[in-house]
Write a protein that binds this DNA or RNA. Structure first.
Lengths: 193, 193, 193, 193
DNA sequence: TCTTAAACGAGACGGTACGTCCGGTCTTATT
DNA sequence: AATAAGACCGGACGTACCGTCTCGTTTAAGA
C-alpha cells in the first residue's frame, strides 16, 4: 500500500534545486540528453526524491517552466489589436527559437507521446494563455476592432496555428514583417461571413 | 576514415523487412517503446545492418512512411476548392489521430530535437506536399476561385496551421463541420487587402 | 571522478550467486565460452552489478576459486617427505586435468596476457601455497630428510616446474609411478653440492 | 560439398602479408587485442582469404612463429653441457620475456583451451626442440658428462619445467646466475640413483 | 592462346557479446 | 517521515568481431 507523499513534509530547497538543475542542463545539452540521473546529481538530490514528486522528466520541466513567472507579457492592451498580437506572437516565437527553445520544444515533443504530460501541459501552461487571448479579443470586440460575432476559437486557430505548423516542420519562423502580414490576413479571416 | 556503405551491395529484402517491422512495432507499442533492438529481432536482421543504413530509429520510420506510396490522395481537383481542401485536410487529420498516428507523431516529436532528422522529414515528406498544395491553389487562382495575387505562403499557414496547433497541444481535431468553418474563414483570410 | 563502490553496501547474496553461476557455467561450457552476459543471466543479476565489483571475467573466476576453501589438502605431514609431496602433487595434477581444469587453466591462460589478473592470481592463490610448501620443506630439513642448507626456491622449481611444463604444451601429466620417479630425481637435485 | 582449397593456387604474397601483419599487430597491441579483422585490413587482404587457409587466429600466429627460422640457436654443442644448456635456456627465456613474448605467450594461452591448436603447437614447434634437446643430451652421455642410463624425459622435466612454472605464475625469470644454479641442480637430479 | 575455374579484395550480412547508460525500485543511515 | 547516497535489476544502447556469404576481378591451369 503506497501512500502518496505528504506535501507538508516537502523540502522546498530540494524542489528548487531540481527545477533549476533541470532547466540548466536542458539549456546546456538539450532536452534529448537530459536525464533524471543527471538532474539528481546536479541538484545534489537523490533520484528517489525526484521520483517521489514527479512522474517523468517531462513533468519536472513542465513545472520548471511553469514556475518561471511572466514567461510571456500576457496580451497587453495598448488599444491596437494588431500591434498587441504582434507583440505577443513575437514573444512566443522568441521562446520557440534557438537557443531558448530546448526546454519548451522538448516538452512539446514528449507530450506528443505522453498523454498525461500532454494534459498537464495543456491545462497548466496553455489553457490560461488561451483564456487570456480570448479576453483580449473580447475587448477588441467591445471596442469595435473585431466583429461582435467573430468566432474566437477560429481566431485562435488562425492566429496561433501558423507558428506551430512552422515549428513542427522546421519551416522557419516569420520575421517581423511577415508576422505583420500574417496577422493582418488572420484578422481578415476571422470576420464572419 | 569511414567510407559510406556501398548502396549497390544493399540487401533489398532486409531493407523491406526492417521498414515493415518498424511500422508494425510502432503501431503495436507506440513510437516511444520502439527500439532498434526490437526492430532487428522482428525483422530477422542484425542491429549492425540497421545502423549501417540509418542513423537513428527516426530515420527508419521516416523512410518507412516515405515508402508507403499515396499516403495522401494529394490535393485532388474536383473544381471546388473548399471541398477539395476539406478532403485533403480530413486525410491529414486521419493520419494524425489515434490509432494511426503513432509513427507520424513520433517522427514529429523526434524531429523537434534532431536537426538532421527534421531536415529529412521536411524535405522528403513535407516539401512535396507543400508543392502539391500550392499547385492546387494556383489552379484555383486560374479558375477565379482565389484572387490571382493571393499569397500562397500565407495560405499554407492559415490552412494547415490550425491542425498542427491543435496537434501539439492536444486541443482536439476539428470534426467535419468545424473543419468546413475553418476552411471558409481561412480562405477569406487569404484574399488580399 | 569515479569513486570506488562502497563495500559496506554490497549485496552478499548477489555476490555468491555470481560466483556460483560462474563456476557452474565454466564447468558446463568451458572457460572460453563463458561470458559476463551469461553469468549475469544465470545469477539473476544485472551486468552492471558484475562490472561494479570485478574488472573482468577472469577476476570473477579467480574469486570464485579462491572462495572454495580447501581446494588442496595443503601439504600434509605424515613424516615421509616424498610420500607427502606425491599426495600434494597428485591433487594439483587432478585440478589441472579434465574435466576439472576448465576454470583453473582458463584463469592461467587469461593471466598470461592480463598483468593485473596475473598479479592477483599469484598473490591470492599461488603465494600462500608456495609458503605452505616451503614450510613443509623446512620441517623436512629439521627432521633430517633434507639437507639443512638446501635451496627451497630451487626445490620449488624442480618439483612444481615439470607439471606446468607439461600443462602448457599438453605433454600429458605423469601417472603415479612417473610422479614417484620425478619426485625422487627432484629431491636428489635439491641436495646442495 | 566443400572442396578443400587448392594449395597450388595459393597466393604466396598474401600469405606472407598476413603472417607479417599478424606478428606486427601482436607486437603492437598484444595478442588479446589481435583480431582477424585487423589482420585482414592491415595485410590488404579479405577476411575470407584468412579463413580459407587458417582455422583461427592462433593458427595464423603459430605459422608466423614457425616461419621465422632460427628462433632458437638449437642446442649448440661446445662440448660443455652445462654451458650449452645455459645458452639455450637463456634464449628461451628471452623469447618469453617482454616485449618479445606477446605472440608466444598468447599462443600458449590460446592452446590452453583449444585442443587442436595445442596439438599443432606441440607437434610443430615443441616436439622438434624436444628431439634436439634429447640429441644433445645423448651426446653428453656419449662423452661421459651424463650417466649413460640417465632418464632423458626426467631431464626434460627438470630443466625446462622451472621456466614454464615461473611463466604461468609470473614468478619472474631467473637471471644468469640463478639459471646456472638451477641447471647445476637439475643435472644433479638427473643422475640415476 | 584461350578458356575457365580458383582464389582473390571488398564488404554486407546474421549473430553474440561487449561495456555503458539510464530507468525506476529499494535499502540504509542521516536529519 | 523525508532525505542523500547509492546498490540493485532490467533492458536498450551503439560498437566490435565473429564466421559466412555474395559479388565482381584477377590470375594461373590446362585444353
Amino acid at each position: 500500500m503506497s501512500t502518496p507523499p505528504n506535501p507538508l513534509r516537502r523540502n522546498e530547497s530540494s524542489r528548487r534545486a531540481i527545477l533549476e538543475a533541470a532547466l540548466q542542463l536542458c539549456a546546456e545539452d538539450g532536452y534529448g540528453r537530459l536525464t533524471i540521473e543527471a538532474i539528481a546529481a546536479h541538484a545534489g538530490v537523490s533520484k528517489k526524491t525526484i521520483y517521489r514528486w514527479w512522474p517523468s522528466k517531462g513533468a519536472v520541466i513542465l513545472e520548471a517552466i511553469d514556475d518561471m513567472a511572466n514567461l510571456l507579457a500576457d496580451h497587453v492592451d495598448t488599444g491596437n489589436l494588431a500591434a498587441d498580437l504582434h507583440t505577443q506572437l513575437s514573444a512566443v516565437i522568441e521562446l520557440l527559437t534557438p537557443p531558448n527553445n530546448s526546454a519548451i520544444t522538448g516538452l512539446i515533443a514528449e507530450a506528443l507521446h505522453d498523454k498525461d504530460l500532454a494534459n498537464d501541459l495543456r491545462e497548466r501552461l496553455i489553457r490560461p494563455r488561451i483564456t487570456a487571448f480570448k479576453e483580449r479579443m473580447r475587448i477588441a470586440q467591445a471596442s469595435g476592432q473585431l466583429a461582435p460575432d467573430a468566432d474566437l476559437d477560429v481566431a485562435l486557430d488562425l492566429i496561433y496555428g501558423p507558428i506551430y505548423h512552422r515549428l513542427v516542420f522546421h519551416l522557419g519562423m516569420p520575421d517581423a514583417e511577415q508576422l505583420r502580414t500574417l496577422i493582418a490576413h488572420a484578422l481578415r479571416g476571422i470576420q464572419p461571413a
